[in-house]
Design a protein around this nucleic acid. Structure first.
Lengths: 218, 218
DNA sequence: CCATCATTCAATAAAACGATAGAATGATGG
DNA sequence: CCATCATTCTATCGTTTTATTGAATGATGG
C-alpha cells in the first residue's frame, strides 16, 4: 500500500539533491548553458571524479540529464523551472535566515555604504528597455554570452572592461548583468565604470532568471 | 574573504532541511495552521522527541519559528512562500522523476481508469465560483477547517460524509478540497459522493496553496 | 586493433544524519 | 515551593553522505 509519506520521501530525495553547495554550484553553472563534465569541474573547482559523482546524484534526482557527444558527456538542466526553484529557495533563505543576509551583505555591500549601487529590478529594466533609455551590458565570459544572452546586450567580459569602453554608449544609462544574483561580475563592473564616470547600475537578477521567466533571449 | 560558494553552502543548508520526508510532513501540516509539538508529532506519526528534533532542524534553517504559549511551544511557518517552494519542488519532481509519477498514479489513479475523476484547476474553480455554478466542500477535520478555509466552503469531515449529506446542494456541481495535492481525503470524498449520484470533482490543490497564492480565505 | 582521452565505477575513511532512551529545563496550578 | 506536564537536551548507535584514490569503461583517431 502506498501512503502520502512515500511521496514525501521521494520528494525529499529531490530536495536532498539540492542540499549540497557543490551541487548548487553545478546547477548554477548549468543554468548558464549545457556543459561537459570537465567544463563543469573547472568552473566549480571540483575534481573531475567528484564532479561526475555529484552530477550522477543530480541525475538520479531528475534535475539534470546527460547526453554523449563524441568523447564528452554534455549535461543540461532537465527543466527551466529548476532555475525558478533555486530562485525561490534563495528568496526564502534570504528573508528568513539571518546568516544568509549577513553573507549577502558582506559579499556585495561592503563598498556600497551609501547605497548608490542599488540594483535595478526586472520590471524597471523592462521599462527602461522599452523606452530606449537603457543599454544592456553582459559582463560574462564570451563563451557564456554566445550560449545565450539578453536581447541587444553588448558583451564585454569583465577582464576586458577597460579595453572596450568604446562599445559603451555615453548617452544612456547602462545596466550590467551577469550570471545571477550571487555573481559578483556585474557588481565589480558597476564599481569600475562608475569610477570612470559612467551612469550604470546592476541588474539584480541574471541571464538564467531572465530566460526562466520566459522573456526573449538572443 | 567571502566567496559565492559560502552563500551556496548556506543555501544548501536550507535545502537539506527540506531533504527529509518527516520534515516535509511537518511542513505540510504546518501549512494547514500553527500547531504544538505534540499535535505535530501525532499528525505525522513521530515520537514527540523526534518531532522536536526535526522542528529544531527546520528552525535552524529559518523555515519555522516557535513561540511559547503556556506549557506548549507553538510552531509556525516563517513565510507563506515556503508553500510555494514546496509546490514548485513537487512540480519539478513530478515532471522529471519517473518514480514520482509512478507513486502519484498509484496513490490516486487506481480507481480512476476512465479518468472521470480529473481534478479541477485553480482557474477553473475561480470561474465556477464567480458564476455561482460551484459549491465548495472542505473535507478536512473540523479543527483544520476552523483554522482557515476557502470562502463559502461547507465543512464535512470525511468520516461524517454520509451523515451530513443534507448540507450539500443538489443543484450545483460540488468541488471538494483538502490539505493539498497529495492529500487523499478529497479524492476519497469524490468517489463516495459519485456513488451517491452527486456531481462532484476534486480541486487539484488544497487550502495551503490557495492561501499562499494570496486568494481570500475565511 | 591500439593508444588516448573523457568519464564513470568501486572501495575506503571521515563526517553528518536519524532514531531512541533517559535526563534536564521551563511553565503551570495547587 | 512542589508536582506535573510539554518540550528540549544529551549520549549513543547504526546508516548515509562525501571526498579521495585508482581501476574500469566507452568513444575516437590513427
Amino acid at each position: 500500500m502506498i501512503s502520502q509519506q512515500d511521496l514525501l520521501d521521494t520528494l525529499a530525495q529531490v530536495a536532498r539533491a539540492l542540499g549540497n553547495g557543490h551541487r548548487l554550484a553545478l546547477l548554477e553553472r548549468l543554468a548558464q548553458g549545457d556543459a561537459s563534465v570537465e567544463t563543469l569541474a573547472n568552473t566549480t573547482d571540483l575534481t573531475v571524479g567528484n564532479a561526475s559523482q555529484h552530477l550522477q546524484h543530480l541525475r538520479r534526482a531528475g534535475l539534470v540529464t546527460a547526453q554523449r557527444s563524441g568523447k564528452q558527456m554534455i549535461y543540461r538542466l532537465t527543466d527551466e523551472r529548476i532555475v525558478n526553484l533555486l530562485g525561490l529557495l534563495r528568496q526564502v533563505a534570504e528573508t528568513n535566515l539571518a546568516e544568509m543576509e549577513r553573507l549577502v551583505s558582506r559579499l556585495f555591500a561592503e563598498d556600497d555604504a551609501d547605497g548608490v549601487l542599488e540594483a535595478i529590478s526586472r520590471d524597471e529594466l523592462l521599462a527602461g528597455l522599452a523606452s530606449g533609455e537603457v543599454a544592456l551590458l553582459d559582463v560574462r565570459p564570451e563563451e557564456e554570452y554566445e550560449a545565450g544572452h539578453l536581447p541587444e546586450a553588448i558583451n564585454i567580459p569583465l577582464e576586458q572592461l577597460e579595453d572596450m569602453l568604446g562599445k559603451l554608449p555615453r548617452d544612456r544609462e547602462i545596466v550590467a548583468y551577469c550570471r545571477g544574483p550571487y555573481c559578483v561580475l556585474s557588481h565589480e563592473a558597476v564599481q569600475r565604470l562608475r569610477q570612470l564616470g559612467y551612469r550604470v547600475r546592476r541588474f539584480e537578477e541574471g541571464y538564467p532568471e531572465w530566460k526562466a521567466a520566459g522573456l526573449p533571449i538572443a
